[in-house]
């Protein structure tokens, strides 16, 4: 009973800490939302006029739709390709013993530690040397170089806690190698694959440093947001940013709902 006041104080401190962290995390997002509800070209608060006209402009503007489409195309290609490459890569990374595995593990992680602007420049130079004209496809390739190792690591985490003898048991029970992969390995990896896919999509969708170097004449959403914030700011910029955030949240929600439904069906 003597401990109760101390526990209560400790609990209040925990709540205050949690509240501070949440405010620091979400305040910038709220700021963007508030900025989008103004009609002035300069950020100031509180607004003299509250309006949603920037949203009407954003939805009516063909250019912003094109930006979303370009970013979506890149993110989709990167998600699909990185998941396929990373699934195989994760098996090589964490599942099988083979000669050179340690070097592979180190080399695979290298692109993550490269500063992205340096990686973007290096890849642009490589593309030029190869005679390729930068566009959204080369950008997708550069995103892949950076994102695939991350997805590989996310999927590998599933494999580290996995009893490999399950595969042997399935084989021993009469399954072919393909059946073992389909019935045992893939379902075990599935949560990692879904997480990796979501990571890949969001990292590509929001990437600026690599896209700046490698999209050529095409423009992605982060590139447009950056350039318009620097040179020609209007409430259209935060409005487009809010729409982009909402779309990425929607994409994550849809994937999560689809995955939950699939799991329920599989049970």
């Amino acid at each position: 009973m003597i401990e109760a006041p101390r526990q209560s104080a400790w609990r209040r401190l925990q709540d205050a800490w949690l509240g501070t962290v949440l405010v620091l995390l979400y305040l910038p997002i709220v700021s963007v939302l508030l900025a989008s509800l103004s009609n002035t070209r300069y950020m100031q608060f509180p607004h003299r006029v509250w309006t949603t006209s920037a949203y009407s402009d954003a939805l009516a503007d063909y250019t912003t739709a094109g930006l979303h489409l370009t970013s979506f195309k890149i993110a989709l290609v990167v998600t699909l390709a990185s998941v396929v490459i990373a699934t195989a890569g994760a098996l090589a990374f964490a599942r099988y013993e083979w000669r050179g595995r340690r070097w592979y593990q180190r080399l695979l992680l290298l692109p993550i530690f490269f500063p992205q602007p340096v990686l973007g420049l290096a890849l642009l130079l490589a593309l030029n040397a190869a005679g390729l004209t930068p566009d959204w496809r080369t950008s997708a390739f550069t995103h892949l170089v950076w994102i695939t190792p991350i997805v590989t690591l996310v999927i590998s985490i599933r494999l580290y806690g996995y009893d490999v003898q399950q595969e042997e048991a399935a084989y021993d029970l009469g399954a072919s190698r393909m059946q073992v992969f389909r019935e045992i390995t893939l379902p075990v990896l599935a949560p990692g694959i879904v997480s990796g896919a979501m990571f890949a999509f969001l990292l590509s969708w929001s990437n600026l440093p690599l896209s700046i170097y490698t999209t050529g004449a095409d423009t992605t959403l982060p590139e447009w947001l950056f350039s318009r914030t620097a040179t020609n700011y209007s409430p259209l910029v935060p409005a487009v940013a809010v729409i982009a955030t909402a779309l990425s949240a929607l994409a994550v929600l849809l994937v999560w709902l689809a995955w939950s439904g699939l799991r329920r069906l599989l049970r």
Partner: peptide
Amino acid sequence: PTCMVFQSLALFRH
């Protein structure tokens, strides 16, 4: 026509 019961049992947890 044989089958093994493993030390870890290797049950399919999913």
